[in-house]
Structure formats: structure tokens, C-alpha cells
Nucleic acid binder design. Structure first.
Lengths: 168, 168
DNA sequence: CGGCACTGTTGGTAGTCTTACCAATAACGC
DNA sequence: GCGTTATTGGTAAGACTACCAACAGTGCCG
């Protein structure tokens, strides 16, 4: 069937950014299972076809989301470092733990892990971004021979995961 | 359209069990994203409709899988305890860590967590089963005032998760 | 100014995958 | 024989990604 005259509207600004932010919101609130083009589009108030337009493959969206997700965490850590009244390692560590063990954060994290498990390219990105996060953590807390950055991150993840699983 | 004469065969034994085992295999190798009725059925060499017959809702399968999954881990821990030549806490702990940080195990675990996040009933089951696992761990290693079972499990999960994310 | 290329938007759809369901049939236990 | 359970093939209904043609706006170049 030949389409009738179609109504279109003027290009809007920041559509890609709106989509990306919507995707992050969805991932934070509904997890990876809820991260579909339709839900993202609804949240960003755009057409579903826009999502395909700006992120032609699902992978393009999940990759952008992953990078932004870690970016946000790194920024949060830097902000903690900047605003901290005390430079005590314990206090900084507590703030870092609060951020990393936040349920929304863990939901995004577990979602990304599961997605990356069936998407080798995304897995590469996740590894790279994780190392960035690890560097930021090291920079914030200083390296410690007795508790190197990797082991520290693992410890934070473990507590976060435990709280996420057991949560009411 | 009226179906033609249908060929059926004799009931086979252990179909439910085969389906359950197949589901565990799929979850271990392909993660929660691969856990579909069609894939499980193919693996178990049964029809897709069998999966619905024995597990009417997706939840019924995921719940059974979750319980079995933790069962297996608890059994493995008990076996470690039974066969251990040394009773040293360190040696036992190392075996427990090997089991829990196995990639297949972490794949199942992360999958179940993500699934439970959108299935409140499954979440309840996961919490209950986690506590069972925790008890088994406590029983194996003995409780320690300085490192209670919860914190120990979190630590194992953290190292497992880290290894799972960073793995080549 | 006119044409032209490029980007963005729209509505729709093709094709795949998924769970759940169904009627018909067969086998089994009693 | 009869009720129950198991098996079969098929389908309904929905969700999803990816793609498409048509159209609109924008900017550039002659």
C-alpha cells in the first residue's frame, strides 16, 4: 500500500542524548530486561524508529549506555574526592561504597554484565571501562600494597551484590 | 484447519528431570538470555510444548532451576567437607572459592539475579536459597566473629564477579 | 534565486522469537 | 472399559529489532 501524505515535524535537538539518558533510566529502574527500544522511546518521548536511527544496532545502545554508566560512577567518585572535608581513607571509602552498592547501580551493573556475556564487543568495552573505574578508585584512595585496587573493587562489588540479592 | 491423524509415542521417563537438567546446562553455558523453551527443549530432546507441560509458566522453570542450582552448590560444599584431607580453614575456603568463582557458576548466578529482579516470587526463592547456601558455608567453615557468614559470602561473590567480568 | 545533498522525522512493516495454549491421540493403571 | 497422564503438532498473541519509502527542514554552491 502506498503511504498517504505523511506529516513530519522539525528536527529536535539533543534527541540522541535524550535517548541515551532514557536508556540509563530504564536500565536503572527496570534492569536489562526492560531495556527495549519501545520502552526507551516512550521514556525519551520519541518514536521507536528514532532509537534505531541513532543506535542502529542494539549493541550501539548498550555500549553507549555502558560507557556513560561507568562515566557517571567515575564522576561521582571524583566529586566525593573533591568535596570531602576529611581526607581519611575510611571516610572516602565509605562514600565510594555507598555509591557502588546503591541498588540502582547494582541493577545496571548486573544487567550490563549479563548483556556483555552474549556480546563479545560489549564485553571488551566493559573490561576497559572497569579498569578506568579501578583507576579512579585507586586515585581516590591511593594504592595500598595490602589491598590493591582490584581486590578493593571486588570487595565493594561483593558487598553490593550481597545487599542487592538479599534486599527486601 | 483440522489436524490430520497425529502420531504420538509412548511416555518417556524422567522427562521433567531431563528438561530441568537441560535448563541448567543452558543457563550455565549461555546465561539467562539463552534460557528459552525452544533451546531447553532442543537440549533435552523433547518438544517445546513439553516444557510448558511440565513447567506451565516461565517462572516455574526458573524457580526450579534456581533451587537446583543452589542445591548443587551446597552439595559441592558438603563434598568438599567430606573429602578434605585437611581440616584447615584456609584449604576448605580455597575449595569453596574455586566452586563459587567458577565462570559457569557466576553466569548462572548473575542470570538468576537478573531474572529475580523482575520476578518477586523468584526473588523470595533466591533469598531463601541464598540463606541456605550461607548456612552450608557456615557449617563448612565454622562461624567466625571476625568474618561472619554474610560477609564471607559477599567476599566470595565479589571475587567471583570480578573474575567473571575481567575474564579473557 | 534555484537546485541539490544531507540529516532528521514519520508511520508502517517484515521477520524473528517468545510464551502459552489447544484438540487430538496414545499409553498406562485400575 | 475408563479415567488419568503424557505426547504431538500446530497456533494465537505479543514483543522485539531492524528496515524502508516518503517527506521535511537546513545549508551550501552556483
Amino acid at each position: 500500500m502506498r503511504p498517504k501524505a505523511l506529516a513530519t515535524t522539525a528536527p529536535r535537538e539533543g534527541v540522541r542524548e535524550r535517548i541515551l539518558e532514557a536508556a540509563l533510566d530504564i536500565l536503572r529502574e527496570s534492569g536489562i530486561q526492560g531495556l527495549s527500544q519501545v520502552q526507551v522511546a516512550r521514556r525519551a518521548k520519541v518514536r521507536q524508529s528514532h532509537v534505531t536511527y541513532y543506535f542502529p544496532r542494539r549493541h550501539d545502545l548498550t555500549e553507549a549506555v555502558t560507557v556513560r554508566f561507568i562515566d557517571n560512577m567515575v564522576s561521582a567518585l571524583q566529586e566525593v574526592a573533591a568535596r570531602a572535608t576529611s581526607r581519611k581513607r575510611d571516610a572516602l571509602l565509605r562514600r565510594a561504597e555507598e555509591a557502588i552498592t546503591d541498588p540502582g547501580h547494582m541493577r545496571m551493573f548486573t544487567g550490563v554484565i549479563v548483556e556483555a556475556d552474549t556480546d563479545p564487543e560489549l564485553h571488551t568495552v566493559l573490561v576497559r571501562e572497569t579498569k578506568r573505574l579501578q583507576s579512579a578508585l585507586t586515585h581516590l584512595l591511593g594504592d595500598d600494597k595490602r589491598e590493591p585496587a582490584a581486590s578493593l573493587l571486588a570487595s565493594l562489588w561483593g558487598r553490593g551484590l550481597y545487599a542487592f540479592v538479599i534486599r527486601k
